[in-house]
Computed example of a mutant assay.
Amino acid sequence: MAITLYYFAPSPPARIALLAARAVGVDVDIKVVDLFNKEHLTPEFIKINPQHTIPTLDDNGFILWESRTIATYLVRQYGKDDTLYPKNPQLKALVDQRLYFDCDTLWPRIRAIGFPLIWLGETKISEKLRKSLNEAIGFLDKFLHGRKWLCGNNYTIADISILASLSSIVAVGWDISDYPNVKAWLESCKEIPGHDENQAGADAWGDLVRKNLEPGQL
């Protein structure tokens, strides 16, 4: 049986799971769940995932949700080696730290800008939210000082996770000119399998954010 990924392309977390699948080279059957049509709230989907979140993975009856958990599972289960999620305790800890940074700092600050614009009809970005996100991008720029990738000599699931998040706000038109290490890293990320699929989803998210955004907000 095929692995099924319940997916919505504009969703950055959903794209983390897809990028992880592409990176390990495992085939997934993508089932689109349209959040705007509330397909995640159908009885059929809630039976699969009571939290009704996207992405959700069905690996031959093994059901899993939370994007970064899906990514680590796919790498451990199907990865040909430990490049994407190292076994070395120090490298693994560094990857985990970057994943937690995305989960707890970067993505929540991006979401705090995008969610009200997409779902609540807001039209402006407050200065507080703007400064908060730029602070997080500044942290990322420091993480990348002297590095091509976030952890070690190869891209890992930390790069995959942060790429899905950051590419979304960049697609809105966010100015990252003050963060040269981040700009160089985004260019390097074109090497990651599934990059173009992720970019298409990021562009869709960017379009949704800009739809209600007043001119001059970026």
Rank of each mutant, 00 (worst) to 15 (best):
D175H: 07
I160D: 03
G152C: 03
A136Q: 06
P215L: 00
D81F: 06
L41K: 13
G216S: 06
S188H: 15
P43N: 03
E127W: 06
E135P: 00
N181V: 01
S11P: 10
H40N: 15
R98K: 11
Q77R: 14
Y73R: 01
S132R: 13
N181D: 09
T4G: 00
K211F: 15
A202V: 09
A17E: 03
A204K: 14
Y100M: 07
V32Y: 15
A202E: 09
I3A: 03
V28A: 07
D196T: 13
Y78Q: 02
P10W: 10
N37I: 00
L41Y: 15
R109E: 05
R210A: 07
G61R: 03
L5A: 03
N154M: 04
K38E: 13
G138H: 10
V75W: 04
P43F: 10
F45A: 00
K211V: 07
K92H: 14
P180R: 02
S165N: 07
I137G: 03
K128P: 00
L18Y: 15
D82C: 01
Q77E: 15
D104A: 13
R98M: 06
N153V: 05
V28M: 06
Y78A: 00
T105F: 13
A14F: 12
T123S: 11
S165P: 10
K142D: 11
W119V: 14
L150I: 13
K148Q: 11
Q90R: 13
L99P: 04
P55E: 06
L91N: 09
V75S: 00
A202N: 08
D178W: 01
L5G: 05
A112E: 13
A171K: 12
I160T: 08
H52K: 02
S67V: 06
D141V: 08
V209I: 15
D82E: 09
A112R: 14
I118D: 03
P108Y: 11
N181R: 04
S167E: 08
